[in-house]
Design a protein around this nucleic acid. Structure first.
Length: 497
RNA sequence: GACCCAUUAGCUCAGGCGGUAGAGCACUUGACUUUUAAUCAAGGUGUCCGGGGUUCGAGUCCCCGAUGGGUCACCA
C-alpha cells in the first residue's frame, strides 16, 4: 500500500480517525505527545501498594498506560498499568487546574501517561495517587480490545502478542515464569562448574538429531547453509577440546509440522559432562528439574491440564523393552530376528514397513503403546541403536544403546546418552544413517566427517543431556499449547486482500 | 499432508425455516468532585473473511480459496 492509502485506510475507521484528530489538536497547541524522551519515575504500581503505610501522603512519580477512565464531572478516576500491575489515579480539577483537567478528559484508554501526585486511600479503600501534574508520554492511535473479556481471538493473540500482554494478565505471568525457569537452570549449572557456551547456528552440516533442516544461502561464500537442528555435535567437540562441563541454551530450527507441541523454532538446553554416563545424567536431570520446580513454583506437586504430577524423587526408571512388556505383555528382548519383531508388532496392530529392523519395530511399539501412559515422571532406558546413532551400546545387547528419555504427562521432556566416543563405530553409524537418507529418509542424520575426525583425536567417556525448554515451561505454567510459551510463535503471513 | 470446526462493528459475542444486521464494552455529545465492569440521557458504528454459484431475494444454502483452532500423521 502507498503511504496515502495507509492514511486513508486508517481514517476509514471512525475510532482511529477520532484519535488522529485528537493528536492533531494536541500538535496544534504545541503539545507533541511523542516528543518526551524520558520521564523520571520514582515508584511502580506495586511499590506504591506494598509500601502504602510509609508512602501515605508522600509524593511519587509513576508512569503507565491508561486502562480505564471513570469521569465524574470535575473529578475523574483512571487506572494506569505498568509492568507490575495497575494503580488508580484520582484527578481533580481543583488540583491540576481547569486547563490541564480539560486535557486530561481528552486522554484515551491506551495513552501512556506520566504523573506526579500524592499517595492516598479512597473512601472505598483503594490505594490511589492524587494527581498534581501529568504528562502525556505517548498517544495511542488505536483502540485497545475490550476491557472485560480481553483479547480472545488466538490469531490476534499470537500475531499481536503485545495486545495479548496488555490485556491478559496471565500471559505476562507465563513469560516471567519462563524467564525464571531459564535463570534457575543457569544458576543450577553454573553452581556446579558448568561453562555456558555458544556454538554456530549457521552450519554446513546439520547434525545431532533426526530432523529436516531449514536451508539458507551464504552469499560471500556462495554456499547453502543449514540452521542448526541441535547443538550436540559442537558441544561434543568442546568436550574433545578439553572443557569437561559445558552447556548451551539455544534456539533450534526444524523444518517439520507445527502443532500444539511443535514450533519450527524452539529452545533446548544441552549439557555434556566428561567422565560421566547416562546414569549420572539421570541423577542430574532429577536434581535439575526438581531444583527448578522448587525455585520457580516452590513445590514438587504440580497440576498440568487437570492432571496431578508429583515430581518427588526418585523417579521411575525402566528399560524400554520392560515398559513395552508392562503395557503389551510382549517381551521384545526375547525377540532376536527382524522378521520375528515385525510379525509381533503387526500382531499388535502397529504399522510396520518391511525395511524396518528389530530396533525400529521396538521403538514404534513403544511410541504406540507406552508413551501416552507415562504421565508421572519416568525415565525410559536403553533405546535401539537404529534410532540412536550418537549413543554408546549397552553391555548386554550390542543393538541397544545407553540412552534414556524422560517422560512427563506422556511427553518427552529430556533425552540423554552415554555419548559414543568410538570414532570407528561413529563412522559406521553415520554410514548406516546415510543409507537410510539415500533411501528417502530426509530426517536421517547427515555424515559429518569433521565431527568424526575430531573424535579420532580422542574423546573422553561423556554423559550428555538435552531438555526441551519450551515443554518444560509448558509443564510449569500449565500451558496447553507451545504457542502459549513462545512470545512470537511462527505464523503464516496474512495476505493483503 | 488428511479430516473436522470457526471467521458478523475496534473488541467480546448473538443472529430459528433464505426476506436486506443486533447486544455489551469501547467511541461521540451532555450531566455528575471518592468511582472502580462507575452511573444517567442521547447518538453513529459494518467489505457479515475473499471469490463464484443457486434464488425474485444469501450473514444464512452449494462450490473454490484464505487465515486460525482442533484431531490424526511426522517430529521434540
Amino acid at each position: 500500500m502507498e503511504r496515502d492509502d495507509i492514511i486513508q485506510y486508517q481514517e476509514d475507521n471512525e475510532l482511529i480517525a477520532i484519535r488522529r484528530n485528537k493528536l492533531e489538536a494536541l500538535m496544534a497547541k504545541g503539545l507533541n505527545p511523542f516528543s518526551r524522551k524520558k520521564y523520571q519515575v520514582t515508584h511502580n504500581s506495586k511499590e506504591v501498594k506494598e509500601q502504602f503505610e510509609s508512602l501515605d501522603g508522600c509524593e511519587v512519580s509513576i508512569a503507565g498506560r491508561i486502562m480505564a477512565k471513570r469521569g465524574h464531572g470535575k473529578a475523574s478516576f483512571c487506572d494506569i498499568m505498568d509492568e507490575l500491575g495497575k494503580i488508580q489515579l484520582y484527578v481533580k480539577m481543583d488540583e491540576v487546574g481547569p486547563e490541564a483537567y480539560e486535557l486530561f478528559r481528552d486522554l484515551d484508554i491506551g495513552d501512556i501517561l506520566g504523573v506526579i501526585g500524592t499517595v492516598f486511600k479512597t473512601h472505598s479503600g483503594e490505594i490511589s495517587v492524587k494527581v498534581k501534574t501529568f504528562e502525556l508520554l505517548a498517544k495511542s492511535l488505536r483502540p485497545l480490545p475490550e476491557k472485560w473479556h480481553g483479547l480472545q481471538d488466538p490469531d490476534l493473540r499470537y500475531r499481536q502478542r503485545y495486545l495479548d500482554l496488555i490485556m491478559n494478565d496471565k500471559v505476562k505471568e507465563t513469560f516471567v515464569t519462563r524467564s525464571r525457569i531459564i535463570k534457575a537452570m543457569r544458576n543450577f549449572l553454573d553452581a556446579r562448574g558448568y561453562l555456558e557456551v555458544e556454538t554456530p547456528v549457521l552450519q554446513t552440516t546439520a547434525g545431532g538429531a533426526a530432523a529436516r533442516p531449514f536451508i539458507t544461502h551464504h552469499n560471500a561464500l556462495d554456499i547453502d547453509m543449514y540452521l542448526r537442528i541441535a547443538t550436540e555435535l559442537h558441544l561434543k567437540r568442546l568436550i574433545i577440546g578439553g572443557f569437561e562441563k559445558v552447556y548451551e541454551i539455544g534456539r533450534i530450527f526444524r523444518n517439520e509440522g507445527m502443532d500444539i507441541k511443535h514450533n519450527p523454532e524452539f529452545t533446548t538446553i544441552e549439557l555434556y559432562e566428561a567422565y560421566c554416563d547416562y546414569h549420572d545424567m539421570m541423577d542430574l536431570t532429577e536434581r535439575l528439574i526438581t531444583y527448578i520446580a522448587q525455585e520457580v513454583l516452590g513445590t514438587l506437586k504440580i497440576t498440568y491440564q487437570g492432571q496431578e504430577i508429583d515430581l518427588t524423587l526418585p523417579w521411575r526408571r525402566m528399560r524400554m523393552v520392560d515398559a513395552i512388556k508392562e503395557f503389551t505383555g510382549e517381551d521384545f528382548q526375547a525377540v532376536s530376528s527382524d522378521d520375528q519383531a515385525r510379525a509381533l508388532a503387526r500382531r499388535l496392530g502397529v504399522e510396520i514397513k518391511d525395511s524396518d529392523t528389530r530396533g525400529n519395530v521396538i521403538n514404534a511399539v513403544f511410541e504406540t503403546f507406552v508413551e501416552k501412559h507415562l504421565v508421572q515422571p519416568t525415565f525410559i532406558l536403553d533405546y535401539p541403536i537404529e534410532v540412536s546413532p550418537l549413543a554408546k551400546r549397552t553391555d548386554y545387547d550390542p543393538m541397544m544403546t545407553e540412552r534414556f528419555e524422560l517422560f512427563i504427562t506422556g511427553r518427552e521432556m529430556a533425552n540423554a546418552f552415554s555419548e559414543l566416543n568410538d570414532p570407528l563405530d561413529q563412522r559406521q553409524r553415520f554410514i548406516m544413517q546415510a543409507k537410510q537418507r539415500a533411501a528417502g529418509d530426509e530426517e536421517a542424520h547427515m555424515m559429518d566427517e569433521d565431527f568424526v575426525m575430531a573424535m579420532e583425536y580422542g574423546m573422553p567417556p561423556t554423559g550428555g543431556l538435552g531438555i526441551g525448554v519450551d515443554r518444560l515451561v509448558m509443564l510449569f505454567t500449565d500451558s496447553y499449547s507451545i504457542r502459549d510459551v513462545i512470545l512470537f510463535p511462527t505464523m503464516r503471513p496474512k495476505t493483503s486482500q
